Simulated assay, not measured.
Amino acid sequence: MQQGDRVRVKESVVVFTHPEHRGQAFDMQGQEGDVATVLNDWKGRTISPTLPVIVAFGRYKAHFRAEELEAIS
């Protein structure tokens, strides 16, 4: 996965911070967005974050594992 790729959330991922459903459980499964960033280093040092893929859904961004996403061609 690289920055700019179009992806879809393929697994059930529940968030509580979605701007249209703030404070309520919202399942992101099926939502489509663009990969904003893939975190793999910080200040030149290799890191291993738990949720390394940041996906932008319009103005809203969320962190995911690579296994939770599928590329859209």
Results as ranks from 00 to 15, higher is better:
residue 26 F to D: 04
residue 8 R to D: 01
residue 72 I to T: 13
residue 44 G to I: 00
residue 25 A to F: 12
residue 35 V to I: 12
residue 34 D to L: 08
residue 23 G to D: 08
residue 20 E to K: 07
residue 45 R to F: 02
residue 5 D to A: 07
residue 2 Q to I: 00
residue 66 A to W: 13
residue 70 E to Y: 09
residue 56 A to N: 14
residue 40 N to T: 02
residue 23 G to I: 05
residue 32 E to C: 13
residue 47 I to A: 01
residue 12 S to W: 03
residue 11 E to Y: 05
residue 16 F to H: 13
residue 45 R to V: 02
residue 9 V to Y: 07
residue 50 T to L: 15
residue 30 G to N: 05
residue 23 G to N: 10
residue 24 Q to N: 09
residue 32 E to M: 08
residue 29 Q to L: 02
residue 54 I to E: 11
residue 21 H to R: 11
residue 8 R to G: 01
residue 15 V to T: 09
residue 50 T to F: 12
residue 31 Q to A: 15
residue 64 F to C: 08
residue 58 G to A: 09
residue 14 V to H: 09
residue 12 S to E: 07
residue 5 D to I: 06
residue 65 R to M: 15
residue 23 G to K: 11
residue 39 L to G: 02
residue 51 L to E: 03
residue 53 V to E: 01
residue 11 E to G: 01
residue 8 R to M: 12
residue 43 K to I: 00
residue 25 A to M: 14
residue 5 D to C: 03
residue 68 E to Y: 06
residue 40 N to R: 12
residue 10 K to M: 07
residue 50 T to M: 13
residue 7 V to H: 11
residue 28 M to L: 15
residue 21 H to W: 09
residue 33 G to D: 00
residue 58 G to M: 10
residue 66 A to Y: 12
residue 67 E to N: 12
residue 37 T to V: 09
residue 39 L to R: 12
residue 22 R to I: 12
residue 8 R to K: 11
residue 17 T to E: 01
residue 43 K to Q: 06
residue 4 G to C: 07
residue 50 T to H: 14
residue 34 D to T: 13
residue 62 A to K: 13
residue 25 A to I: 05
residue 4 G to Q: 05
residue 13 V to F: 07
residue 36 A to Y: 15
residue 69 L to F: 13
residue 68 E to N: 14
residue 62 A to W: 14
residue 33 G to M: 00
residue 48 S to H: 14
residue 31 Q to T: 14
residue 27 D to T: 12
residue 73 S to F: 05
residue 3 Q to D: 05
residue 35 V to D: 04
residue 57 F to P: 08
residue 71 A to E: 05
residue 60 Y to G: 02
residue 3 Q to P: 01
residue 65 R to P: 07
residue 50 T to N: 13
residue 52 P to H: 10
residue 53 V to G: 05
residue 72 I to N: 06
residue 30 G to I: 06
residue 67 E to V: 11
residue 60 Y to N: 04
residue 40 N to K: 08
residue 20 E to D: 11
residue 45 R to W: 04
residue 66 A to D: 12
residue 40 N to P: 00
residue 20 E to W: 03
residue 19 P to R: 13
residue 28 M to K: 10
residue 8 R to C: 04
residue 53 V to H: 03
residue 63 H to V: 01
residue 35 V to P: 07
residue 56 A to M: 08
residue 32 E to T: 10
residue 51 L to T: 06
residue 3 Q to W: 00
residue 30 G to K: 01
